[in-house]
């Protein structure tokens, strides 16, 4: 826990009062990175691995402060887990637009990265989710192991902690 372990560095006690001051940026980034609520949204087989297996007790998203939300309005993170067809792409764009800033996207698996097994000879699959929405982290694999998904979430937390307060609206694009 970055901020908590470095409390003496970031905070100073004001004599006579109970007020602690800290860098607002560190505090915002710490709270954003530690409560990364993800949207419960699966497209294909990656949803089994990335949302259910990783969310269940053996790997457990909860210990990163990640809780699933069934509504895009309450979610910070969209894990695009699976094959994105042209028909679904419009819906995903709408869901992404409905999420409130700051928002982050993980493209999970070969299909979401670039079409994967549907790259050749396929009329229906969008070849890469980054053609419609900005992606922060790409996970290779078909499907990726839950360990890779956890690693991606940790990487995303690192990325969030490096953000400046002013740039979160532009950081996702």
């Amino acid at each position: 826990m970055g901020v908590v372990s470095k409390l003496p560095v970031y905070m100073e006690r004001i004599p006579g009062g109970g007020i602690l001051t800290t860098s607002a940026e560190k505090f915002f980034n710490w709270s954003r990175a530690s409560s990364l609520w993800y949207m419960l949204f699966g497209l294909a087989c990656c949803a089994i691995e990335g949302l259910m297996a990783t969310g269940a007790s053996r790997y457990d998203y909860d210990r990163l402060g990640m809780i699933f939300r069934a509504s895009p309005r309450q979610a910070d993170l969209m894990i695009v887990a699976g094959t994105l067809t042209h028909k679904m792409a419009k819906r995903v764009k709408i869901l992404y637009d409905q999420m409130s800033e700051p928002k982050y996207v993980i493209a999970m698996g070969g299909c979401a990265n670039n079409g994967g097994p549907f790259y050749y000879d396929c009329y229906s699959v969008l070849k890469g989710v980054d053609k419609i929405i900005p992606v922060d982290i790409y996970i290779p694999g078909c499907p990726p192991r839950p360990e890779s998904v956890m690693e991606a979430c940790l990487k995303l937390q690192e990325k969030i902690k490096k953000q400046k307060l002013g740039d979160w609206s532009s950081s996702t694009s």
């Binding site: 042209h86 028909k87 419009k90 790259y119 050749y120 000879d121 396929c122 009329y123 229906s124 969008l126 070849k127």
Partner: peptide, 24 residues
């Protein structure tokens, strides 16, 4: 199955090609 505003022809016809279509 296809989108309502699909305008790229009939994909199961032989020799069909669309704008994102990559032949193996």
């Amino acid at each position: 199955l296809l989108d309502d505003d699909w305008d790229e022809g009939y994909p199961m016809r032989r020799g069909w090609s669309g704008k994102d279509f990559v032949v193996k």
